[in-house]
Design a protein around this nucleic acid. Structure first.
Lengths: 343, 343
DNA sequence: CTGAAAGCGCTTACAG
DNA sequence: CTGAAAGCGCTTACAG
């Protein structure tokens, strides 16, 4: 590789000092002579000079880079929010390093350490239970960090997430309005008290109670993805089978669709189905799927904006807030009893 | 934020020089006294010292970071390959910065510049026609770079991509074997000569010719995503409508499924459908979709491995090669005439 | 076996 | 209006 051009080469070429080049690069033209300016400009383009961001970062103690750690990149939610975060960062001259922790606290901790060693200016994280200590240390140091999608017990920091309770209330009420009466909910494992899962279950319970429907614990399935087929088996073996299911997220949805496909269960007619998280094939599924969408774009924008603000004025410490976003019901045929079948 | 601990602090605490700490950090224990070693170890953990990677990178002139620029992150192919690249990089202590160029050459060029300014050690790129000059310059400088998914005319560099011709041959032959005779192909715009699209069309033509079926240009639709509904309209308005469609990729597939859903065209029976690129809902679609899968995991692994090797021995210059991967046919019901309908 | 010194490529007071 | 000097936090010959 040809030798890298540095600021010293440009200084030589233009016949000025390194300092002056640096002023030029940082747009500090106040006192710079018109002629100096154009000489520098020419030297830079002649040499095809590209500043070394690493050196600048070392000196400035800021890298214009943030880290984003998601718990599970397989959720469509993650990828959508990430795209939105990247947009905001790009517009503001920031880079993003994306990490997927696979819901593994060890892995997440290692990522946090790596990102800090890389001197990222801030962190957006979908926190994983078990790393409270790490987060707390960062917060105590006033390191800029914003949580996404999940709250952490006892930690008071800015968090952007869905109004999850509302999401399942919308789901349950919609099902009830469409004549379903025995509503089950299926979601991923509850053992770690992951915020959206817990809140969605609670919203489901609340909605049933408000409608004076008794809550059956055997209608509530919170389990690992791989166990969901078994959970569905249990559900469909009950004396009183449910007539509708609320799917907790897009990954559980796939399990439910697979199961009902394999067992020839006609969605809509035999079992109403509504899922939280919009999916690409929602509109073209047979029958089209009624979903509760999250405003992922806005949420990504918000979480990035909050973080960038924190990074910019470290002093302007506002009280951390929880930012809730409203879910949106998209009605399609999977929750219409008469709408079952292929067309 | 509390003051950052540096190597100097550790040196003080341990009562040795900075050099010695650095030796320790770089695992150069050859001549280090056992006692010095344990004193340093203690100092590091007492102070919770974290090395500053930016400083190290500046000195070492290497960041252990690579850039990945994909043309369009919306393709499932991109996200899958990226995950695989990240796995390999992680295992090797490398970080990845992902950029989405949105098939926009300007945007891509800017990303390349930013990544170079950040001193990435190498680049994986899904090249976009129009930036040949940029790639060429990098190649001439022996900057480590590997192409993915697309070839660039006149540039000789390592490239990992599908055997695209084979993919459409598999598709066409499978359709013919299942009794379809009037086979159309629909893919995204051909104006930029994007490798997979062109090669897939060519494979389609070749397969038809080998079966002595005349190629009809009005059965070949290569157009922007937004124009595809119109293209499908044209296709279905022909006197001799096609009885089967090869979908060029996952995004065109969505358009075709939307169209056939809206127009109540029964897939399988009225129109056979096979798509290149496996999709998550392939198995649970009605009818399940016959697809041609790419070995995205292996391809990502290969492209990352090639790049990391290039980065490690800059000298060991081998001749660049084109690495083709074989597509795999997954037969489901969307290409069975009798298999149409909901179950 | 360990330390002093130089230097990676920048930026930023400060002097003039 | 511009330049000399110090320094960001490391690493690496080299000396001892």
């Amino acid at each position: 590789m040809s030798k890298k051009i540095t600021i010293a080469d440009v200084a030589n070429q233009a016949g000025v000092s390194k300092s002056t080049i640096s002023q030029y690069l940082n747009n500090r033209f106040e006192y710079m002579g018109e002629e100096t300016r154009s000489r520098i400009k020419k030297a830079i383009s002649d040499l095809e000079y590209q500043p070394n961001v690493v050196a600048r970062s070392l000196k400035k103690k800021s890298t214009s880079t943030i880290g984003v750690i998601v718990a599970n990149i397989l959720h469509a939610f993650s990828t959508q929010v990430i795209r939105s975060i990247e947009n905001v960062c790009n517009e503001n001259g920031f880079s993003t390093i994306i990490c997927n922790a696979d819901d593994n606290p060890e892995k997440e901790k290692k990522y946090i350490e790596t990102l800090l060693a890389k001197q990222v200016d801030g962190l957006i994280v979908v926190p994983i239970s078990g790393n409270s200590d790490t987060y707390e240390k960062l917060l105590n140091q006033d390191f800029p960090i914003v949580f996404l999608d999940r709250l952490v017990d006892g930690l008071n920091t800015d968090t952007v997430l869905l109004n999850n309770g509302k999401a399942s209330e919308l789901a349950v009420n919609h099902l009830l309005e469409n004549g379903y009466e025995k509503i089950a909910i299926v979601t991923t494992s509850l053992i770690d008290n992951v915020t959206p899962r817990v809140e969605r279950i609670n919203g489901y319970i609340k909605a049933l109670e408000e409608n004076n429907i008794s809550v059956r614990t055997d209608y509530i399935k919170g389990m690992e993805l791989s166990k969901i087929p078994q959970g569905l088996n249990e559900l469909f073996s009950l004396d009183e089978k449910p007539d509708a299911i609320v799917s907790g997220n897009d990954l559980t949805l796939m399990e439910i669709l697979k199961y009902s496909f394999e067992h020839q269960i006609r969605i809509g007619k035999e079992i109403g189905l509504i899922t939280i998280d919009e999916v690409s094939f929602g509109p073209i599924h047979s029958p089209p799927l009624t979903t509760i969408a999250q405003p992922t774009f806005e949420m990504g924008k918000e979480v990035a904006t909050i973080l960038l603000n924190k990074i910019r004025d470290k002093n302007a410490k506002q009280d951390p807030a929880v930012h809730r976003y409203e879910p949106r019901l998209i009605v399609r045929k999977s929750t219409k009893k008469e709408g079952a079948g292929n067309e």
